[in-house]
Design a protein around this nucleic acid. Sequence first.
DNA 1: TAGAAATTCCTAGAGGCTCTAGGAAGAGGG
DNA 2: CCCTCTTCCTAGAGCCTCTAGGAATTTCTA
Lengths: 198, 198
Amino acid sequence: MARGAVTADRVAEAAAELADEVGLEGMTVSEVARRLGVKDANLYAHIGNAHELRVRVAVLALAELADRGAVALAGRAGKEALVAFADVYRDYGREHPGRYAAMRVELDPETARASAGRRHSDMMRAILRGYALEEPDQTDAVRLLGSVFHGFVSLEGSGGFRHHPRGADESWSRVLDTLDVALRAWPASAPAGAETSR
Amino acid sequence: MARGAVTADRVAEAAAELADEVGLEGMTVSEVARRLGVKDANLYAHIGNAHELRVRVAVLALAELADRGAVALAGRAGKEALVAFADVYRDYGREHPGRYAAMRVELDPETARASAGRRHSDMMRAILRGYALEEPDQTDAVRLLGSVFHGFVSLEGSGGFRHHPRGADESWSRVLDTLDVALRAWPASAPAGAETSR
DNA sequence: TAGAAATTCCTAGAGGCTCTAGGAAGAGGG
DNA sequence: CCCTCTTCCTAGAGCCTCTAGGAATTTCTA
């Protein structure tokens, strides 16, 4: 039981591992306590409550993923950077489904600011330096990247691509190709005089 | 208490409403029973278990969304169809966050086949008739559409766009513009002799 | 070095959720 | 009128969350 074995960080780490094994739904404070060889009541001294534990896993995952992204981006530019970064996202989602799911819990502004969320968008902006985009198009493009990455990983993870023989790897590759040409051919701000949609 | 007031469909409907109000996490069998004025034990005679209730909500949502999509697509083609359909997705996600989240639960193949999931991909393929795409590009494009729609709605829903002043509506509009040009300029199958990524 | 303070861990227990088992009470058919 | 089916109930076990209060151990401090 080793007194002092339980810290907030260690709890979050154990929770993240558990979440990856059994899914974010199955990640309970009780089970984390069990794995740490400690009574569940004790964990509430380190983490506020069950939701806060999920938030901690989210923060942890955000940071891990940002670290991997930074490595992938180092020394790369243009499409190469885009693909490397995208692959990091997808690989992380498949390797760590629980952590990945946790990243989608809503963070309060305070926590969000302290998290690695900003690093994520900064890295996407860095990728976009390979494509000539001014604000606000750059922000829109960041959101497009985020949507495609997250959407694909999420759909793939929930089995959405299993109903068709086409391999997910191939689709992913083509999606990134398309994203590359789309960013290069980013449409002009006010197309043809009128609102485009809505 | 009106004997016979509880059927599997009515339970799913009440569950969907509850999920929209309190989130999919907060949607419990107990609370649904409470709202139907019935003891929770009773509901287990209609639905197998809590997970099955979520599945029922997912199936319900898939069907509702497919219906709306069909309406949006009627009489439209090309980019107009793309935008109308995409808006249906986003609006549904904002109107019915609980139902929308439920759609991402993993369905067993049996349930998936019986669900409206197929209608969704068929409709996306219909949209793609406005763009010249053969298989397997068409499948890849369907997955791109799904990823962008779901990714954007999901990120917006979890507050991912609130850290920047740029309005989500504007970004959405530009994202769809970009998607339109991307589909039009869909890159050739084997670009420049070698593998593109991975 | 002994006492005080802080920290870590515990037991106990309330209250909620899931789900099973078994029983009562209407509703329709013979 | 009785039989059966269905709907609904109570009881209760097991797990989870979270609070309260107490014991043990480490660390500060005089």
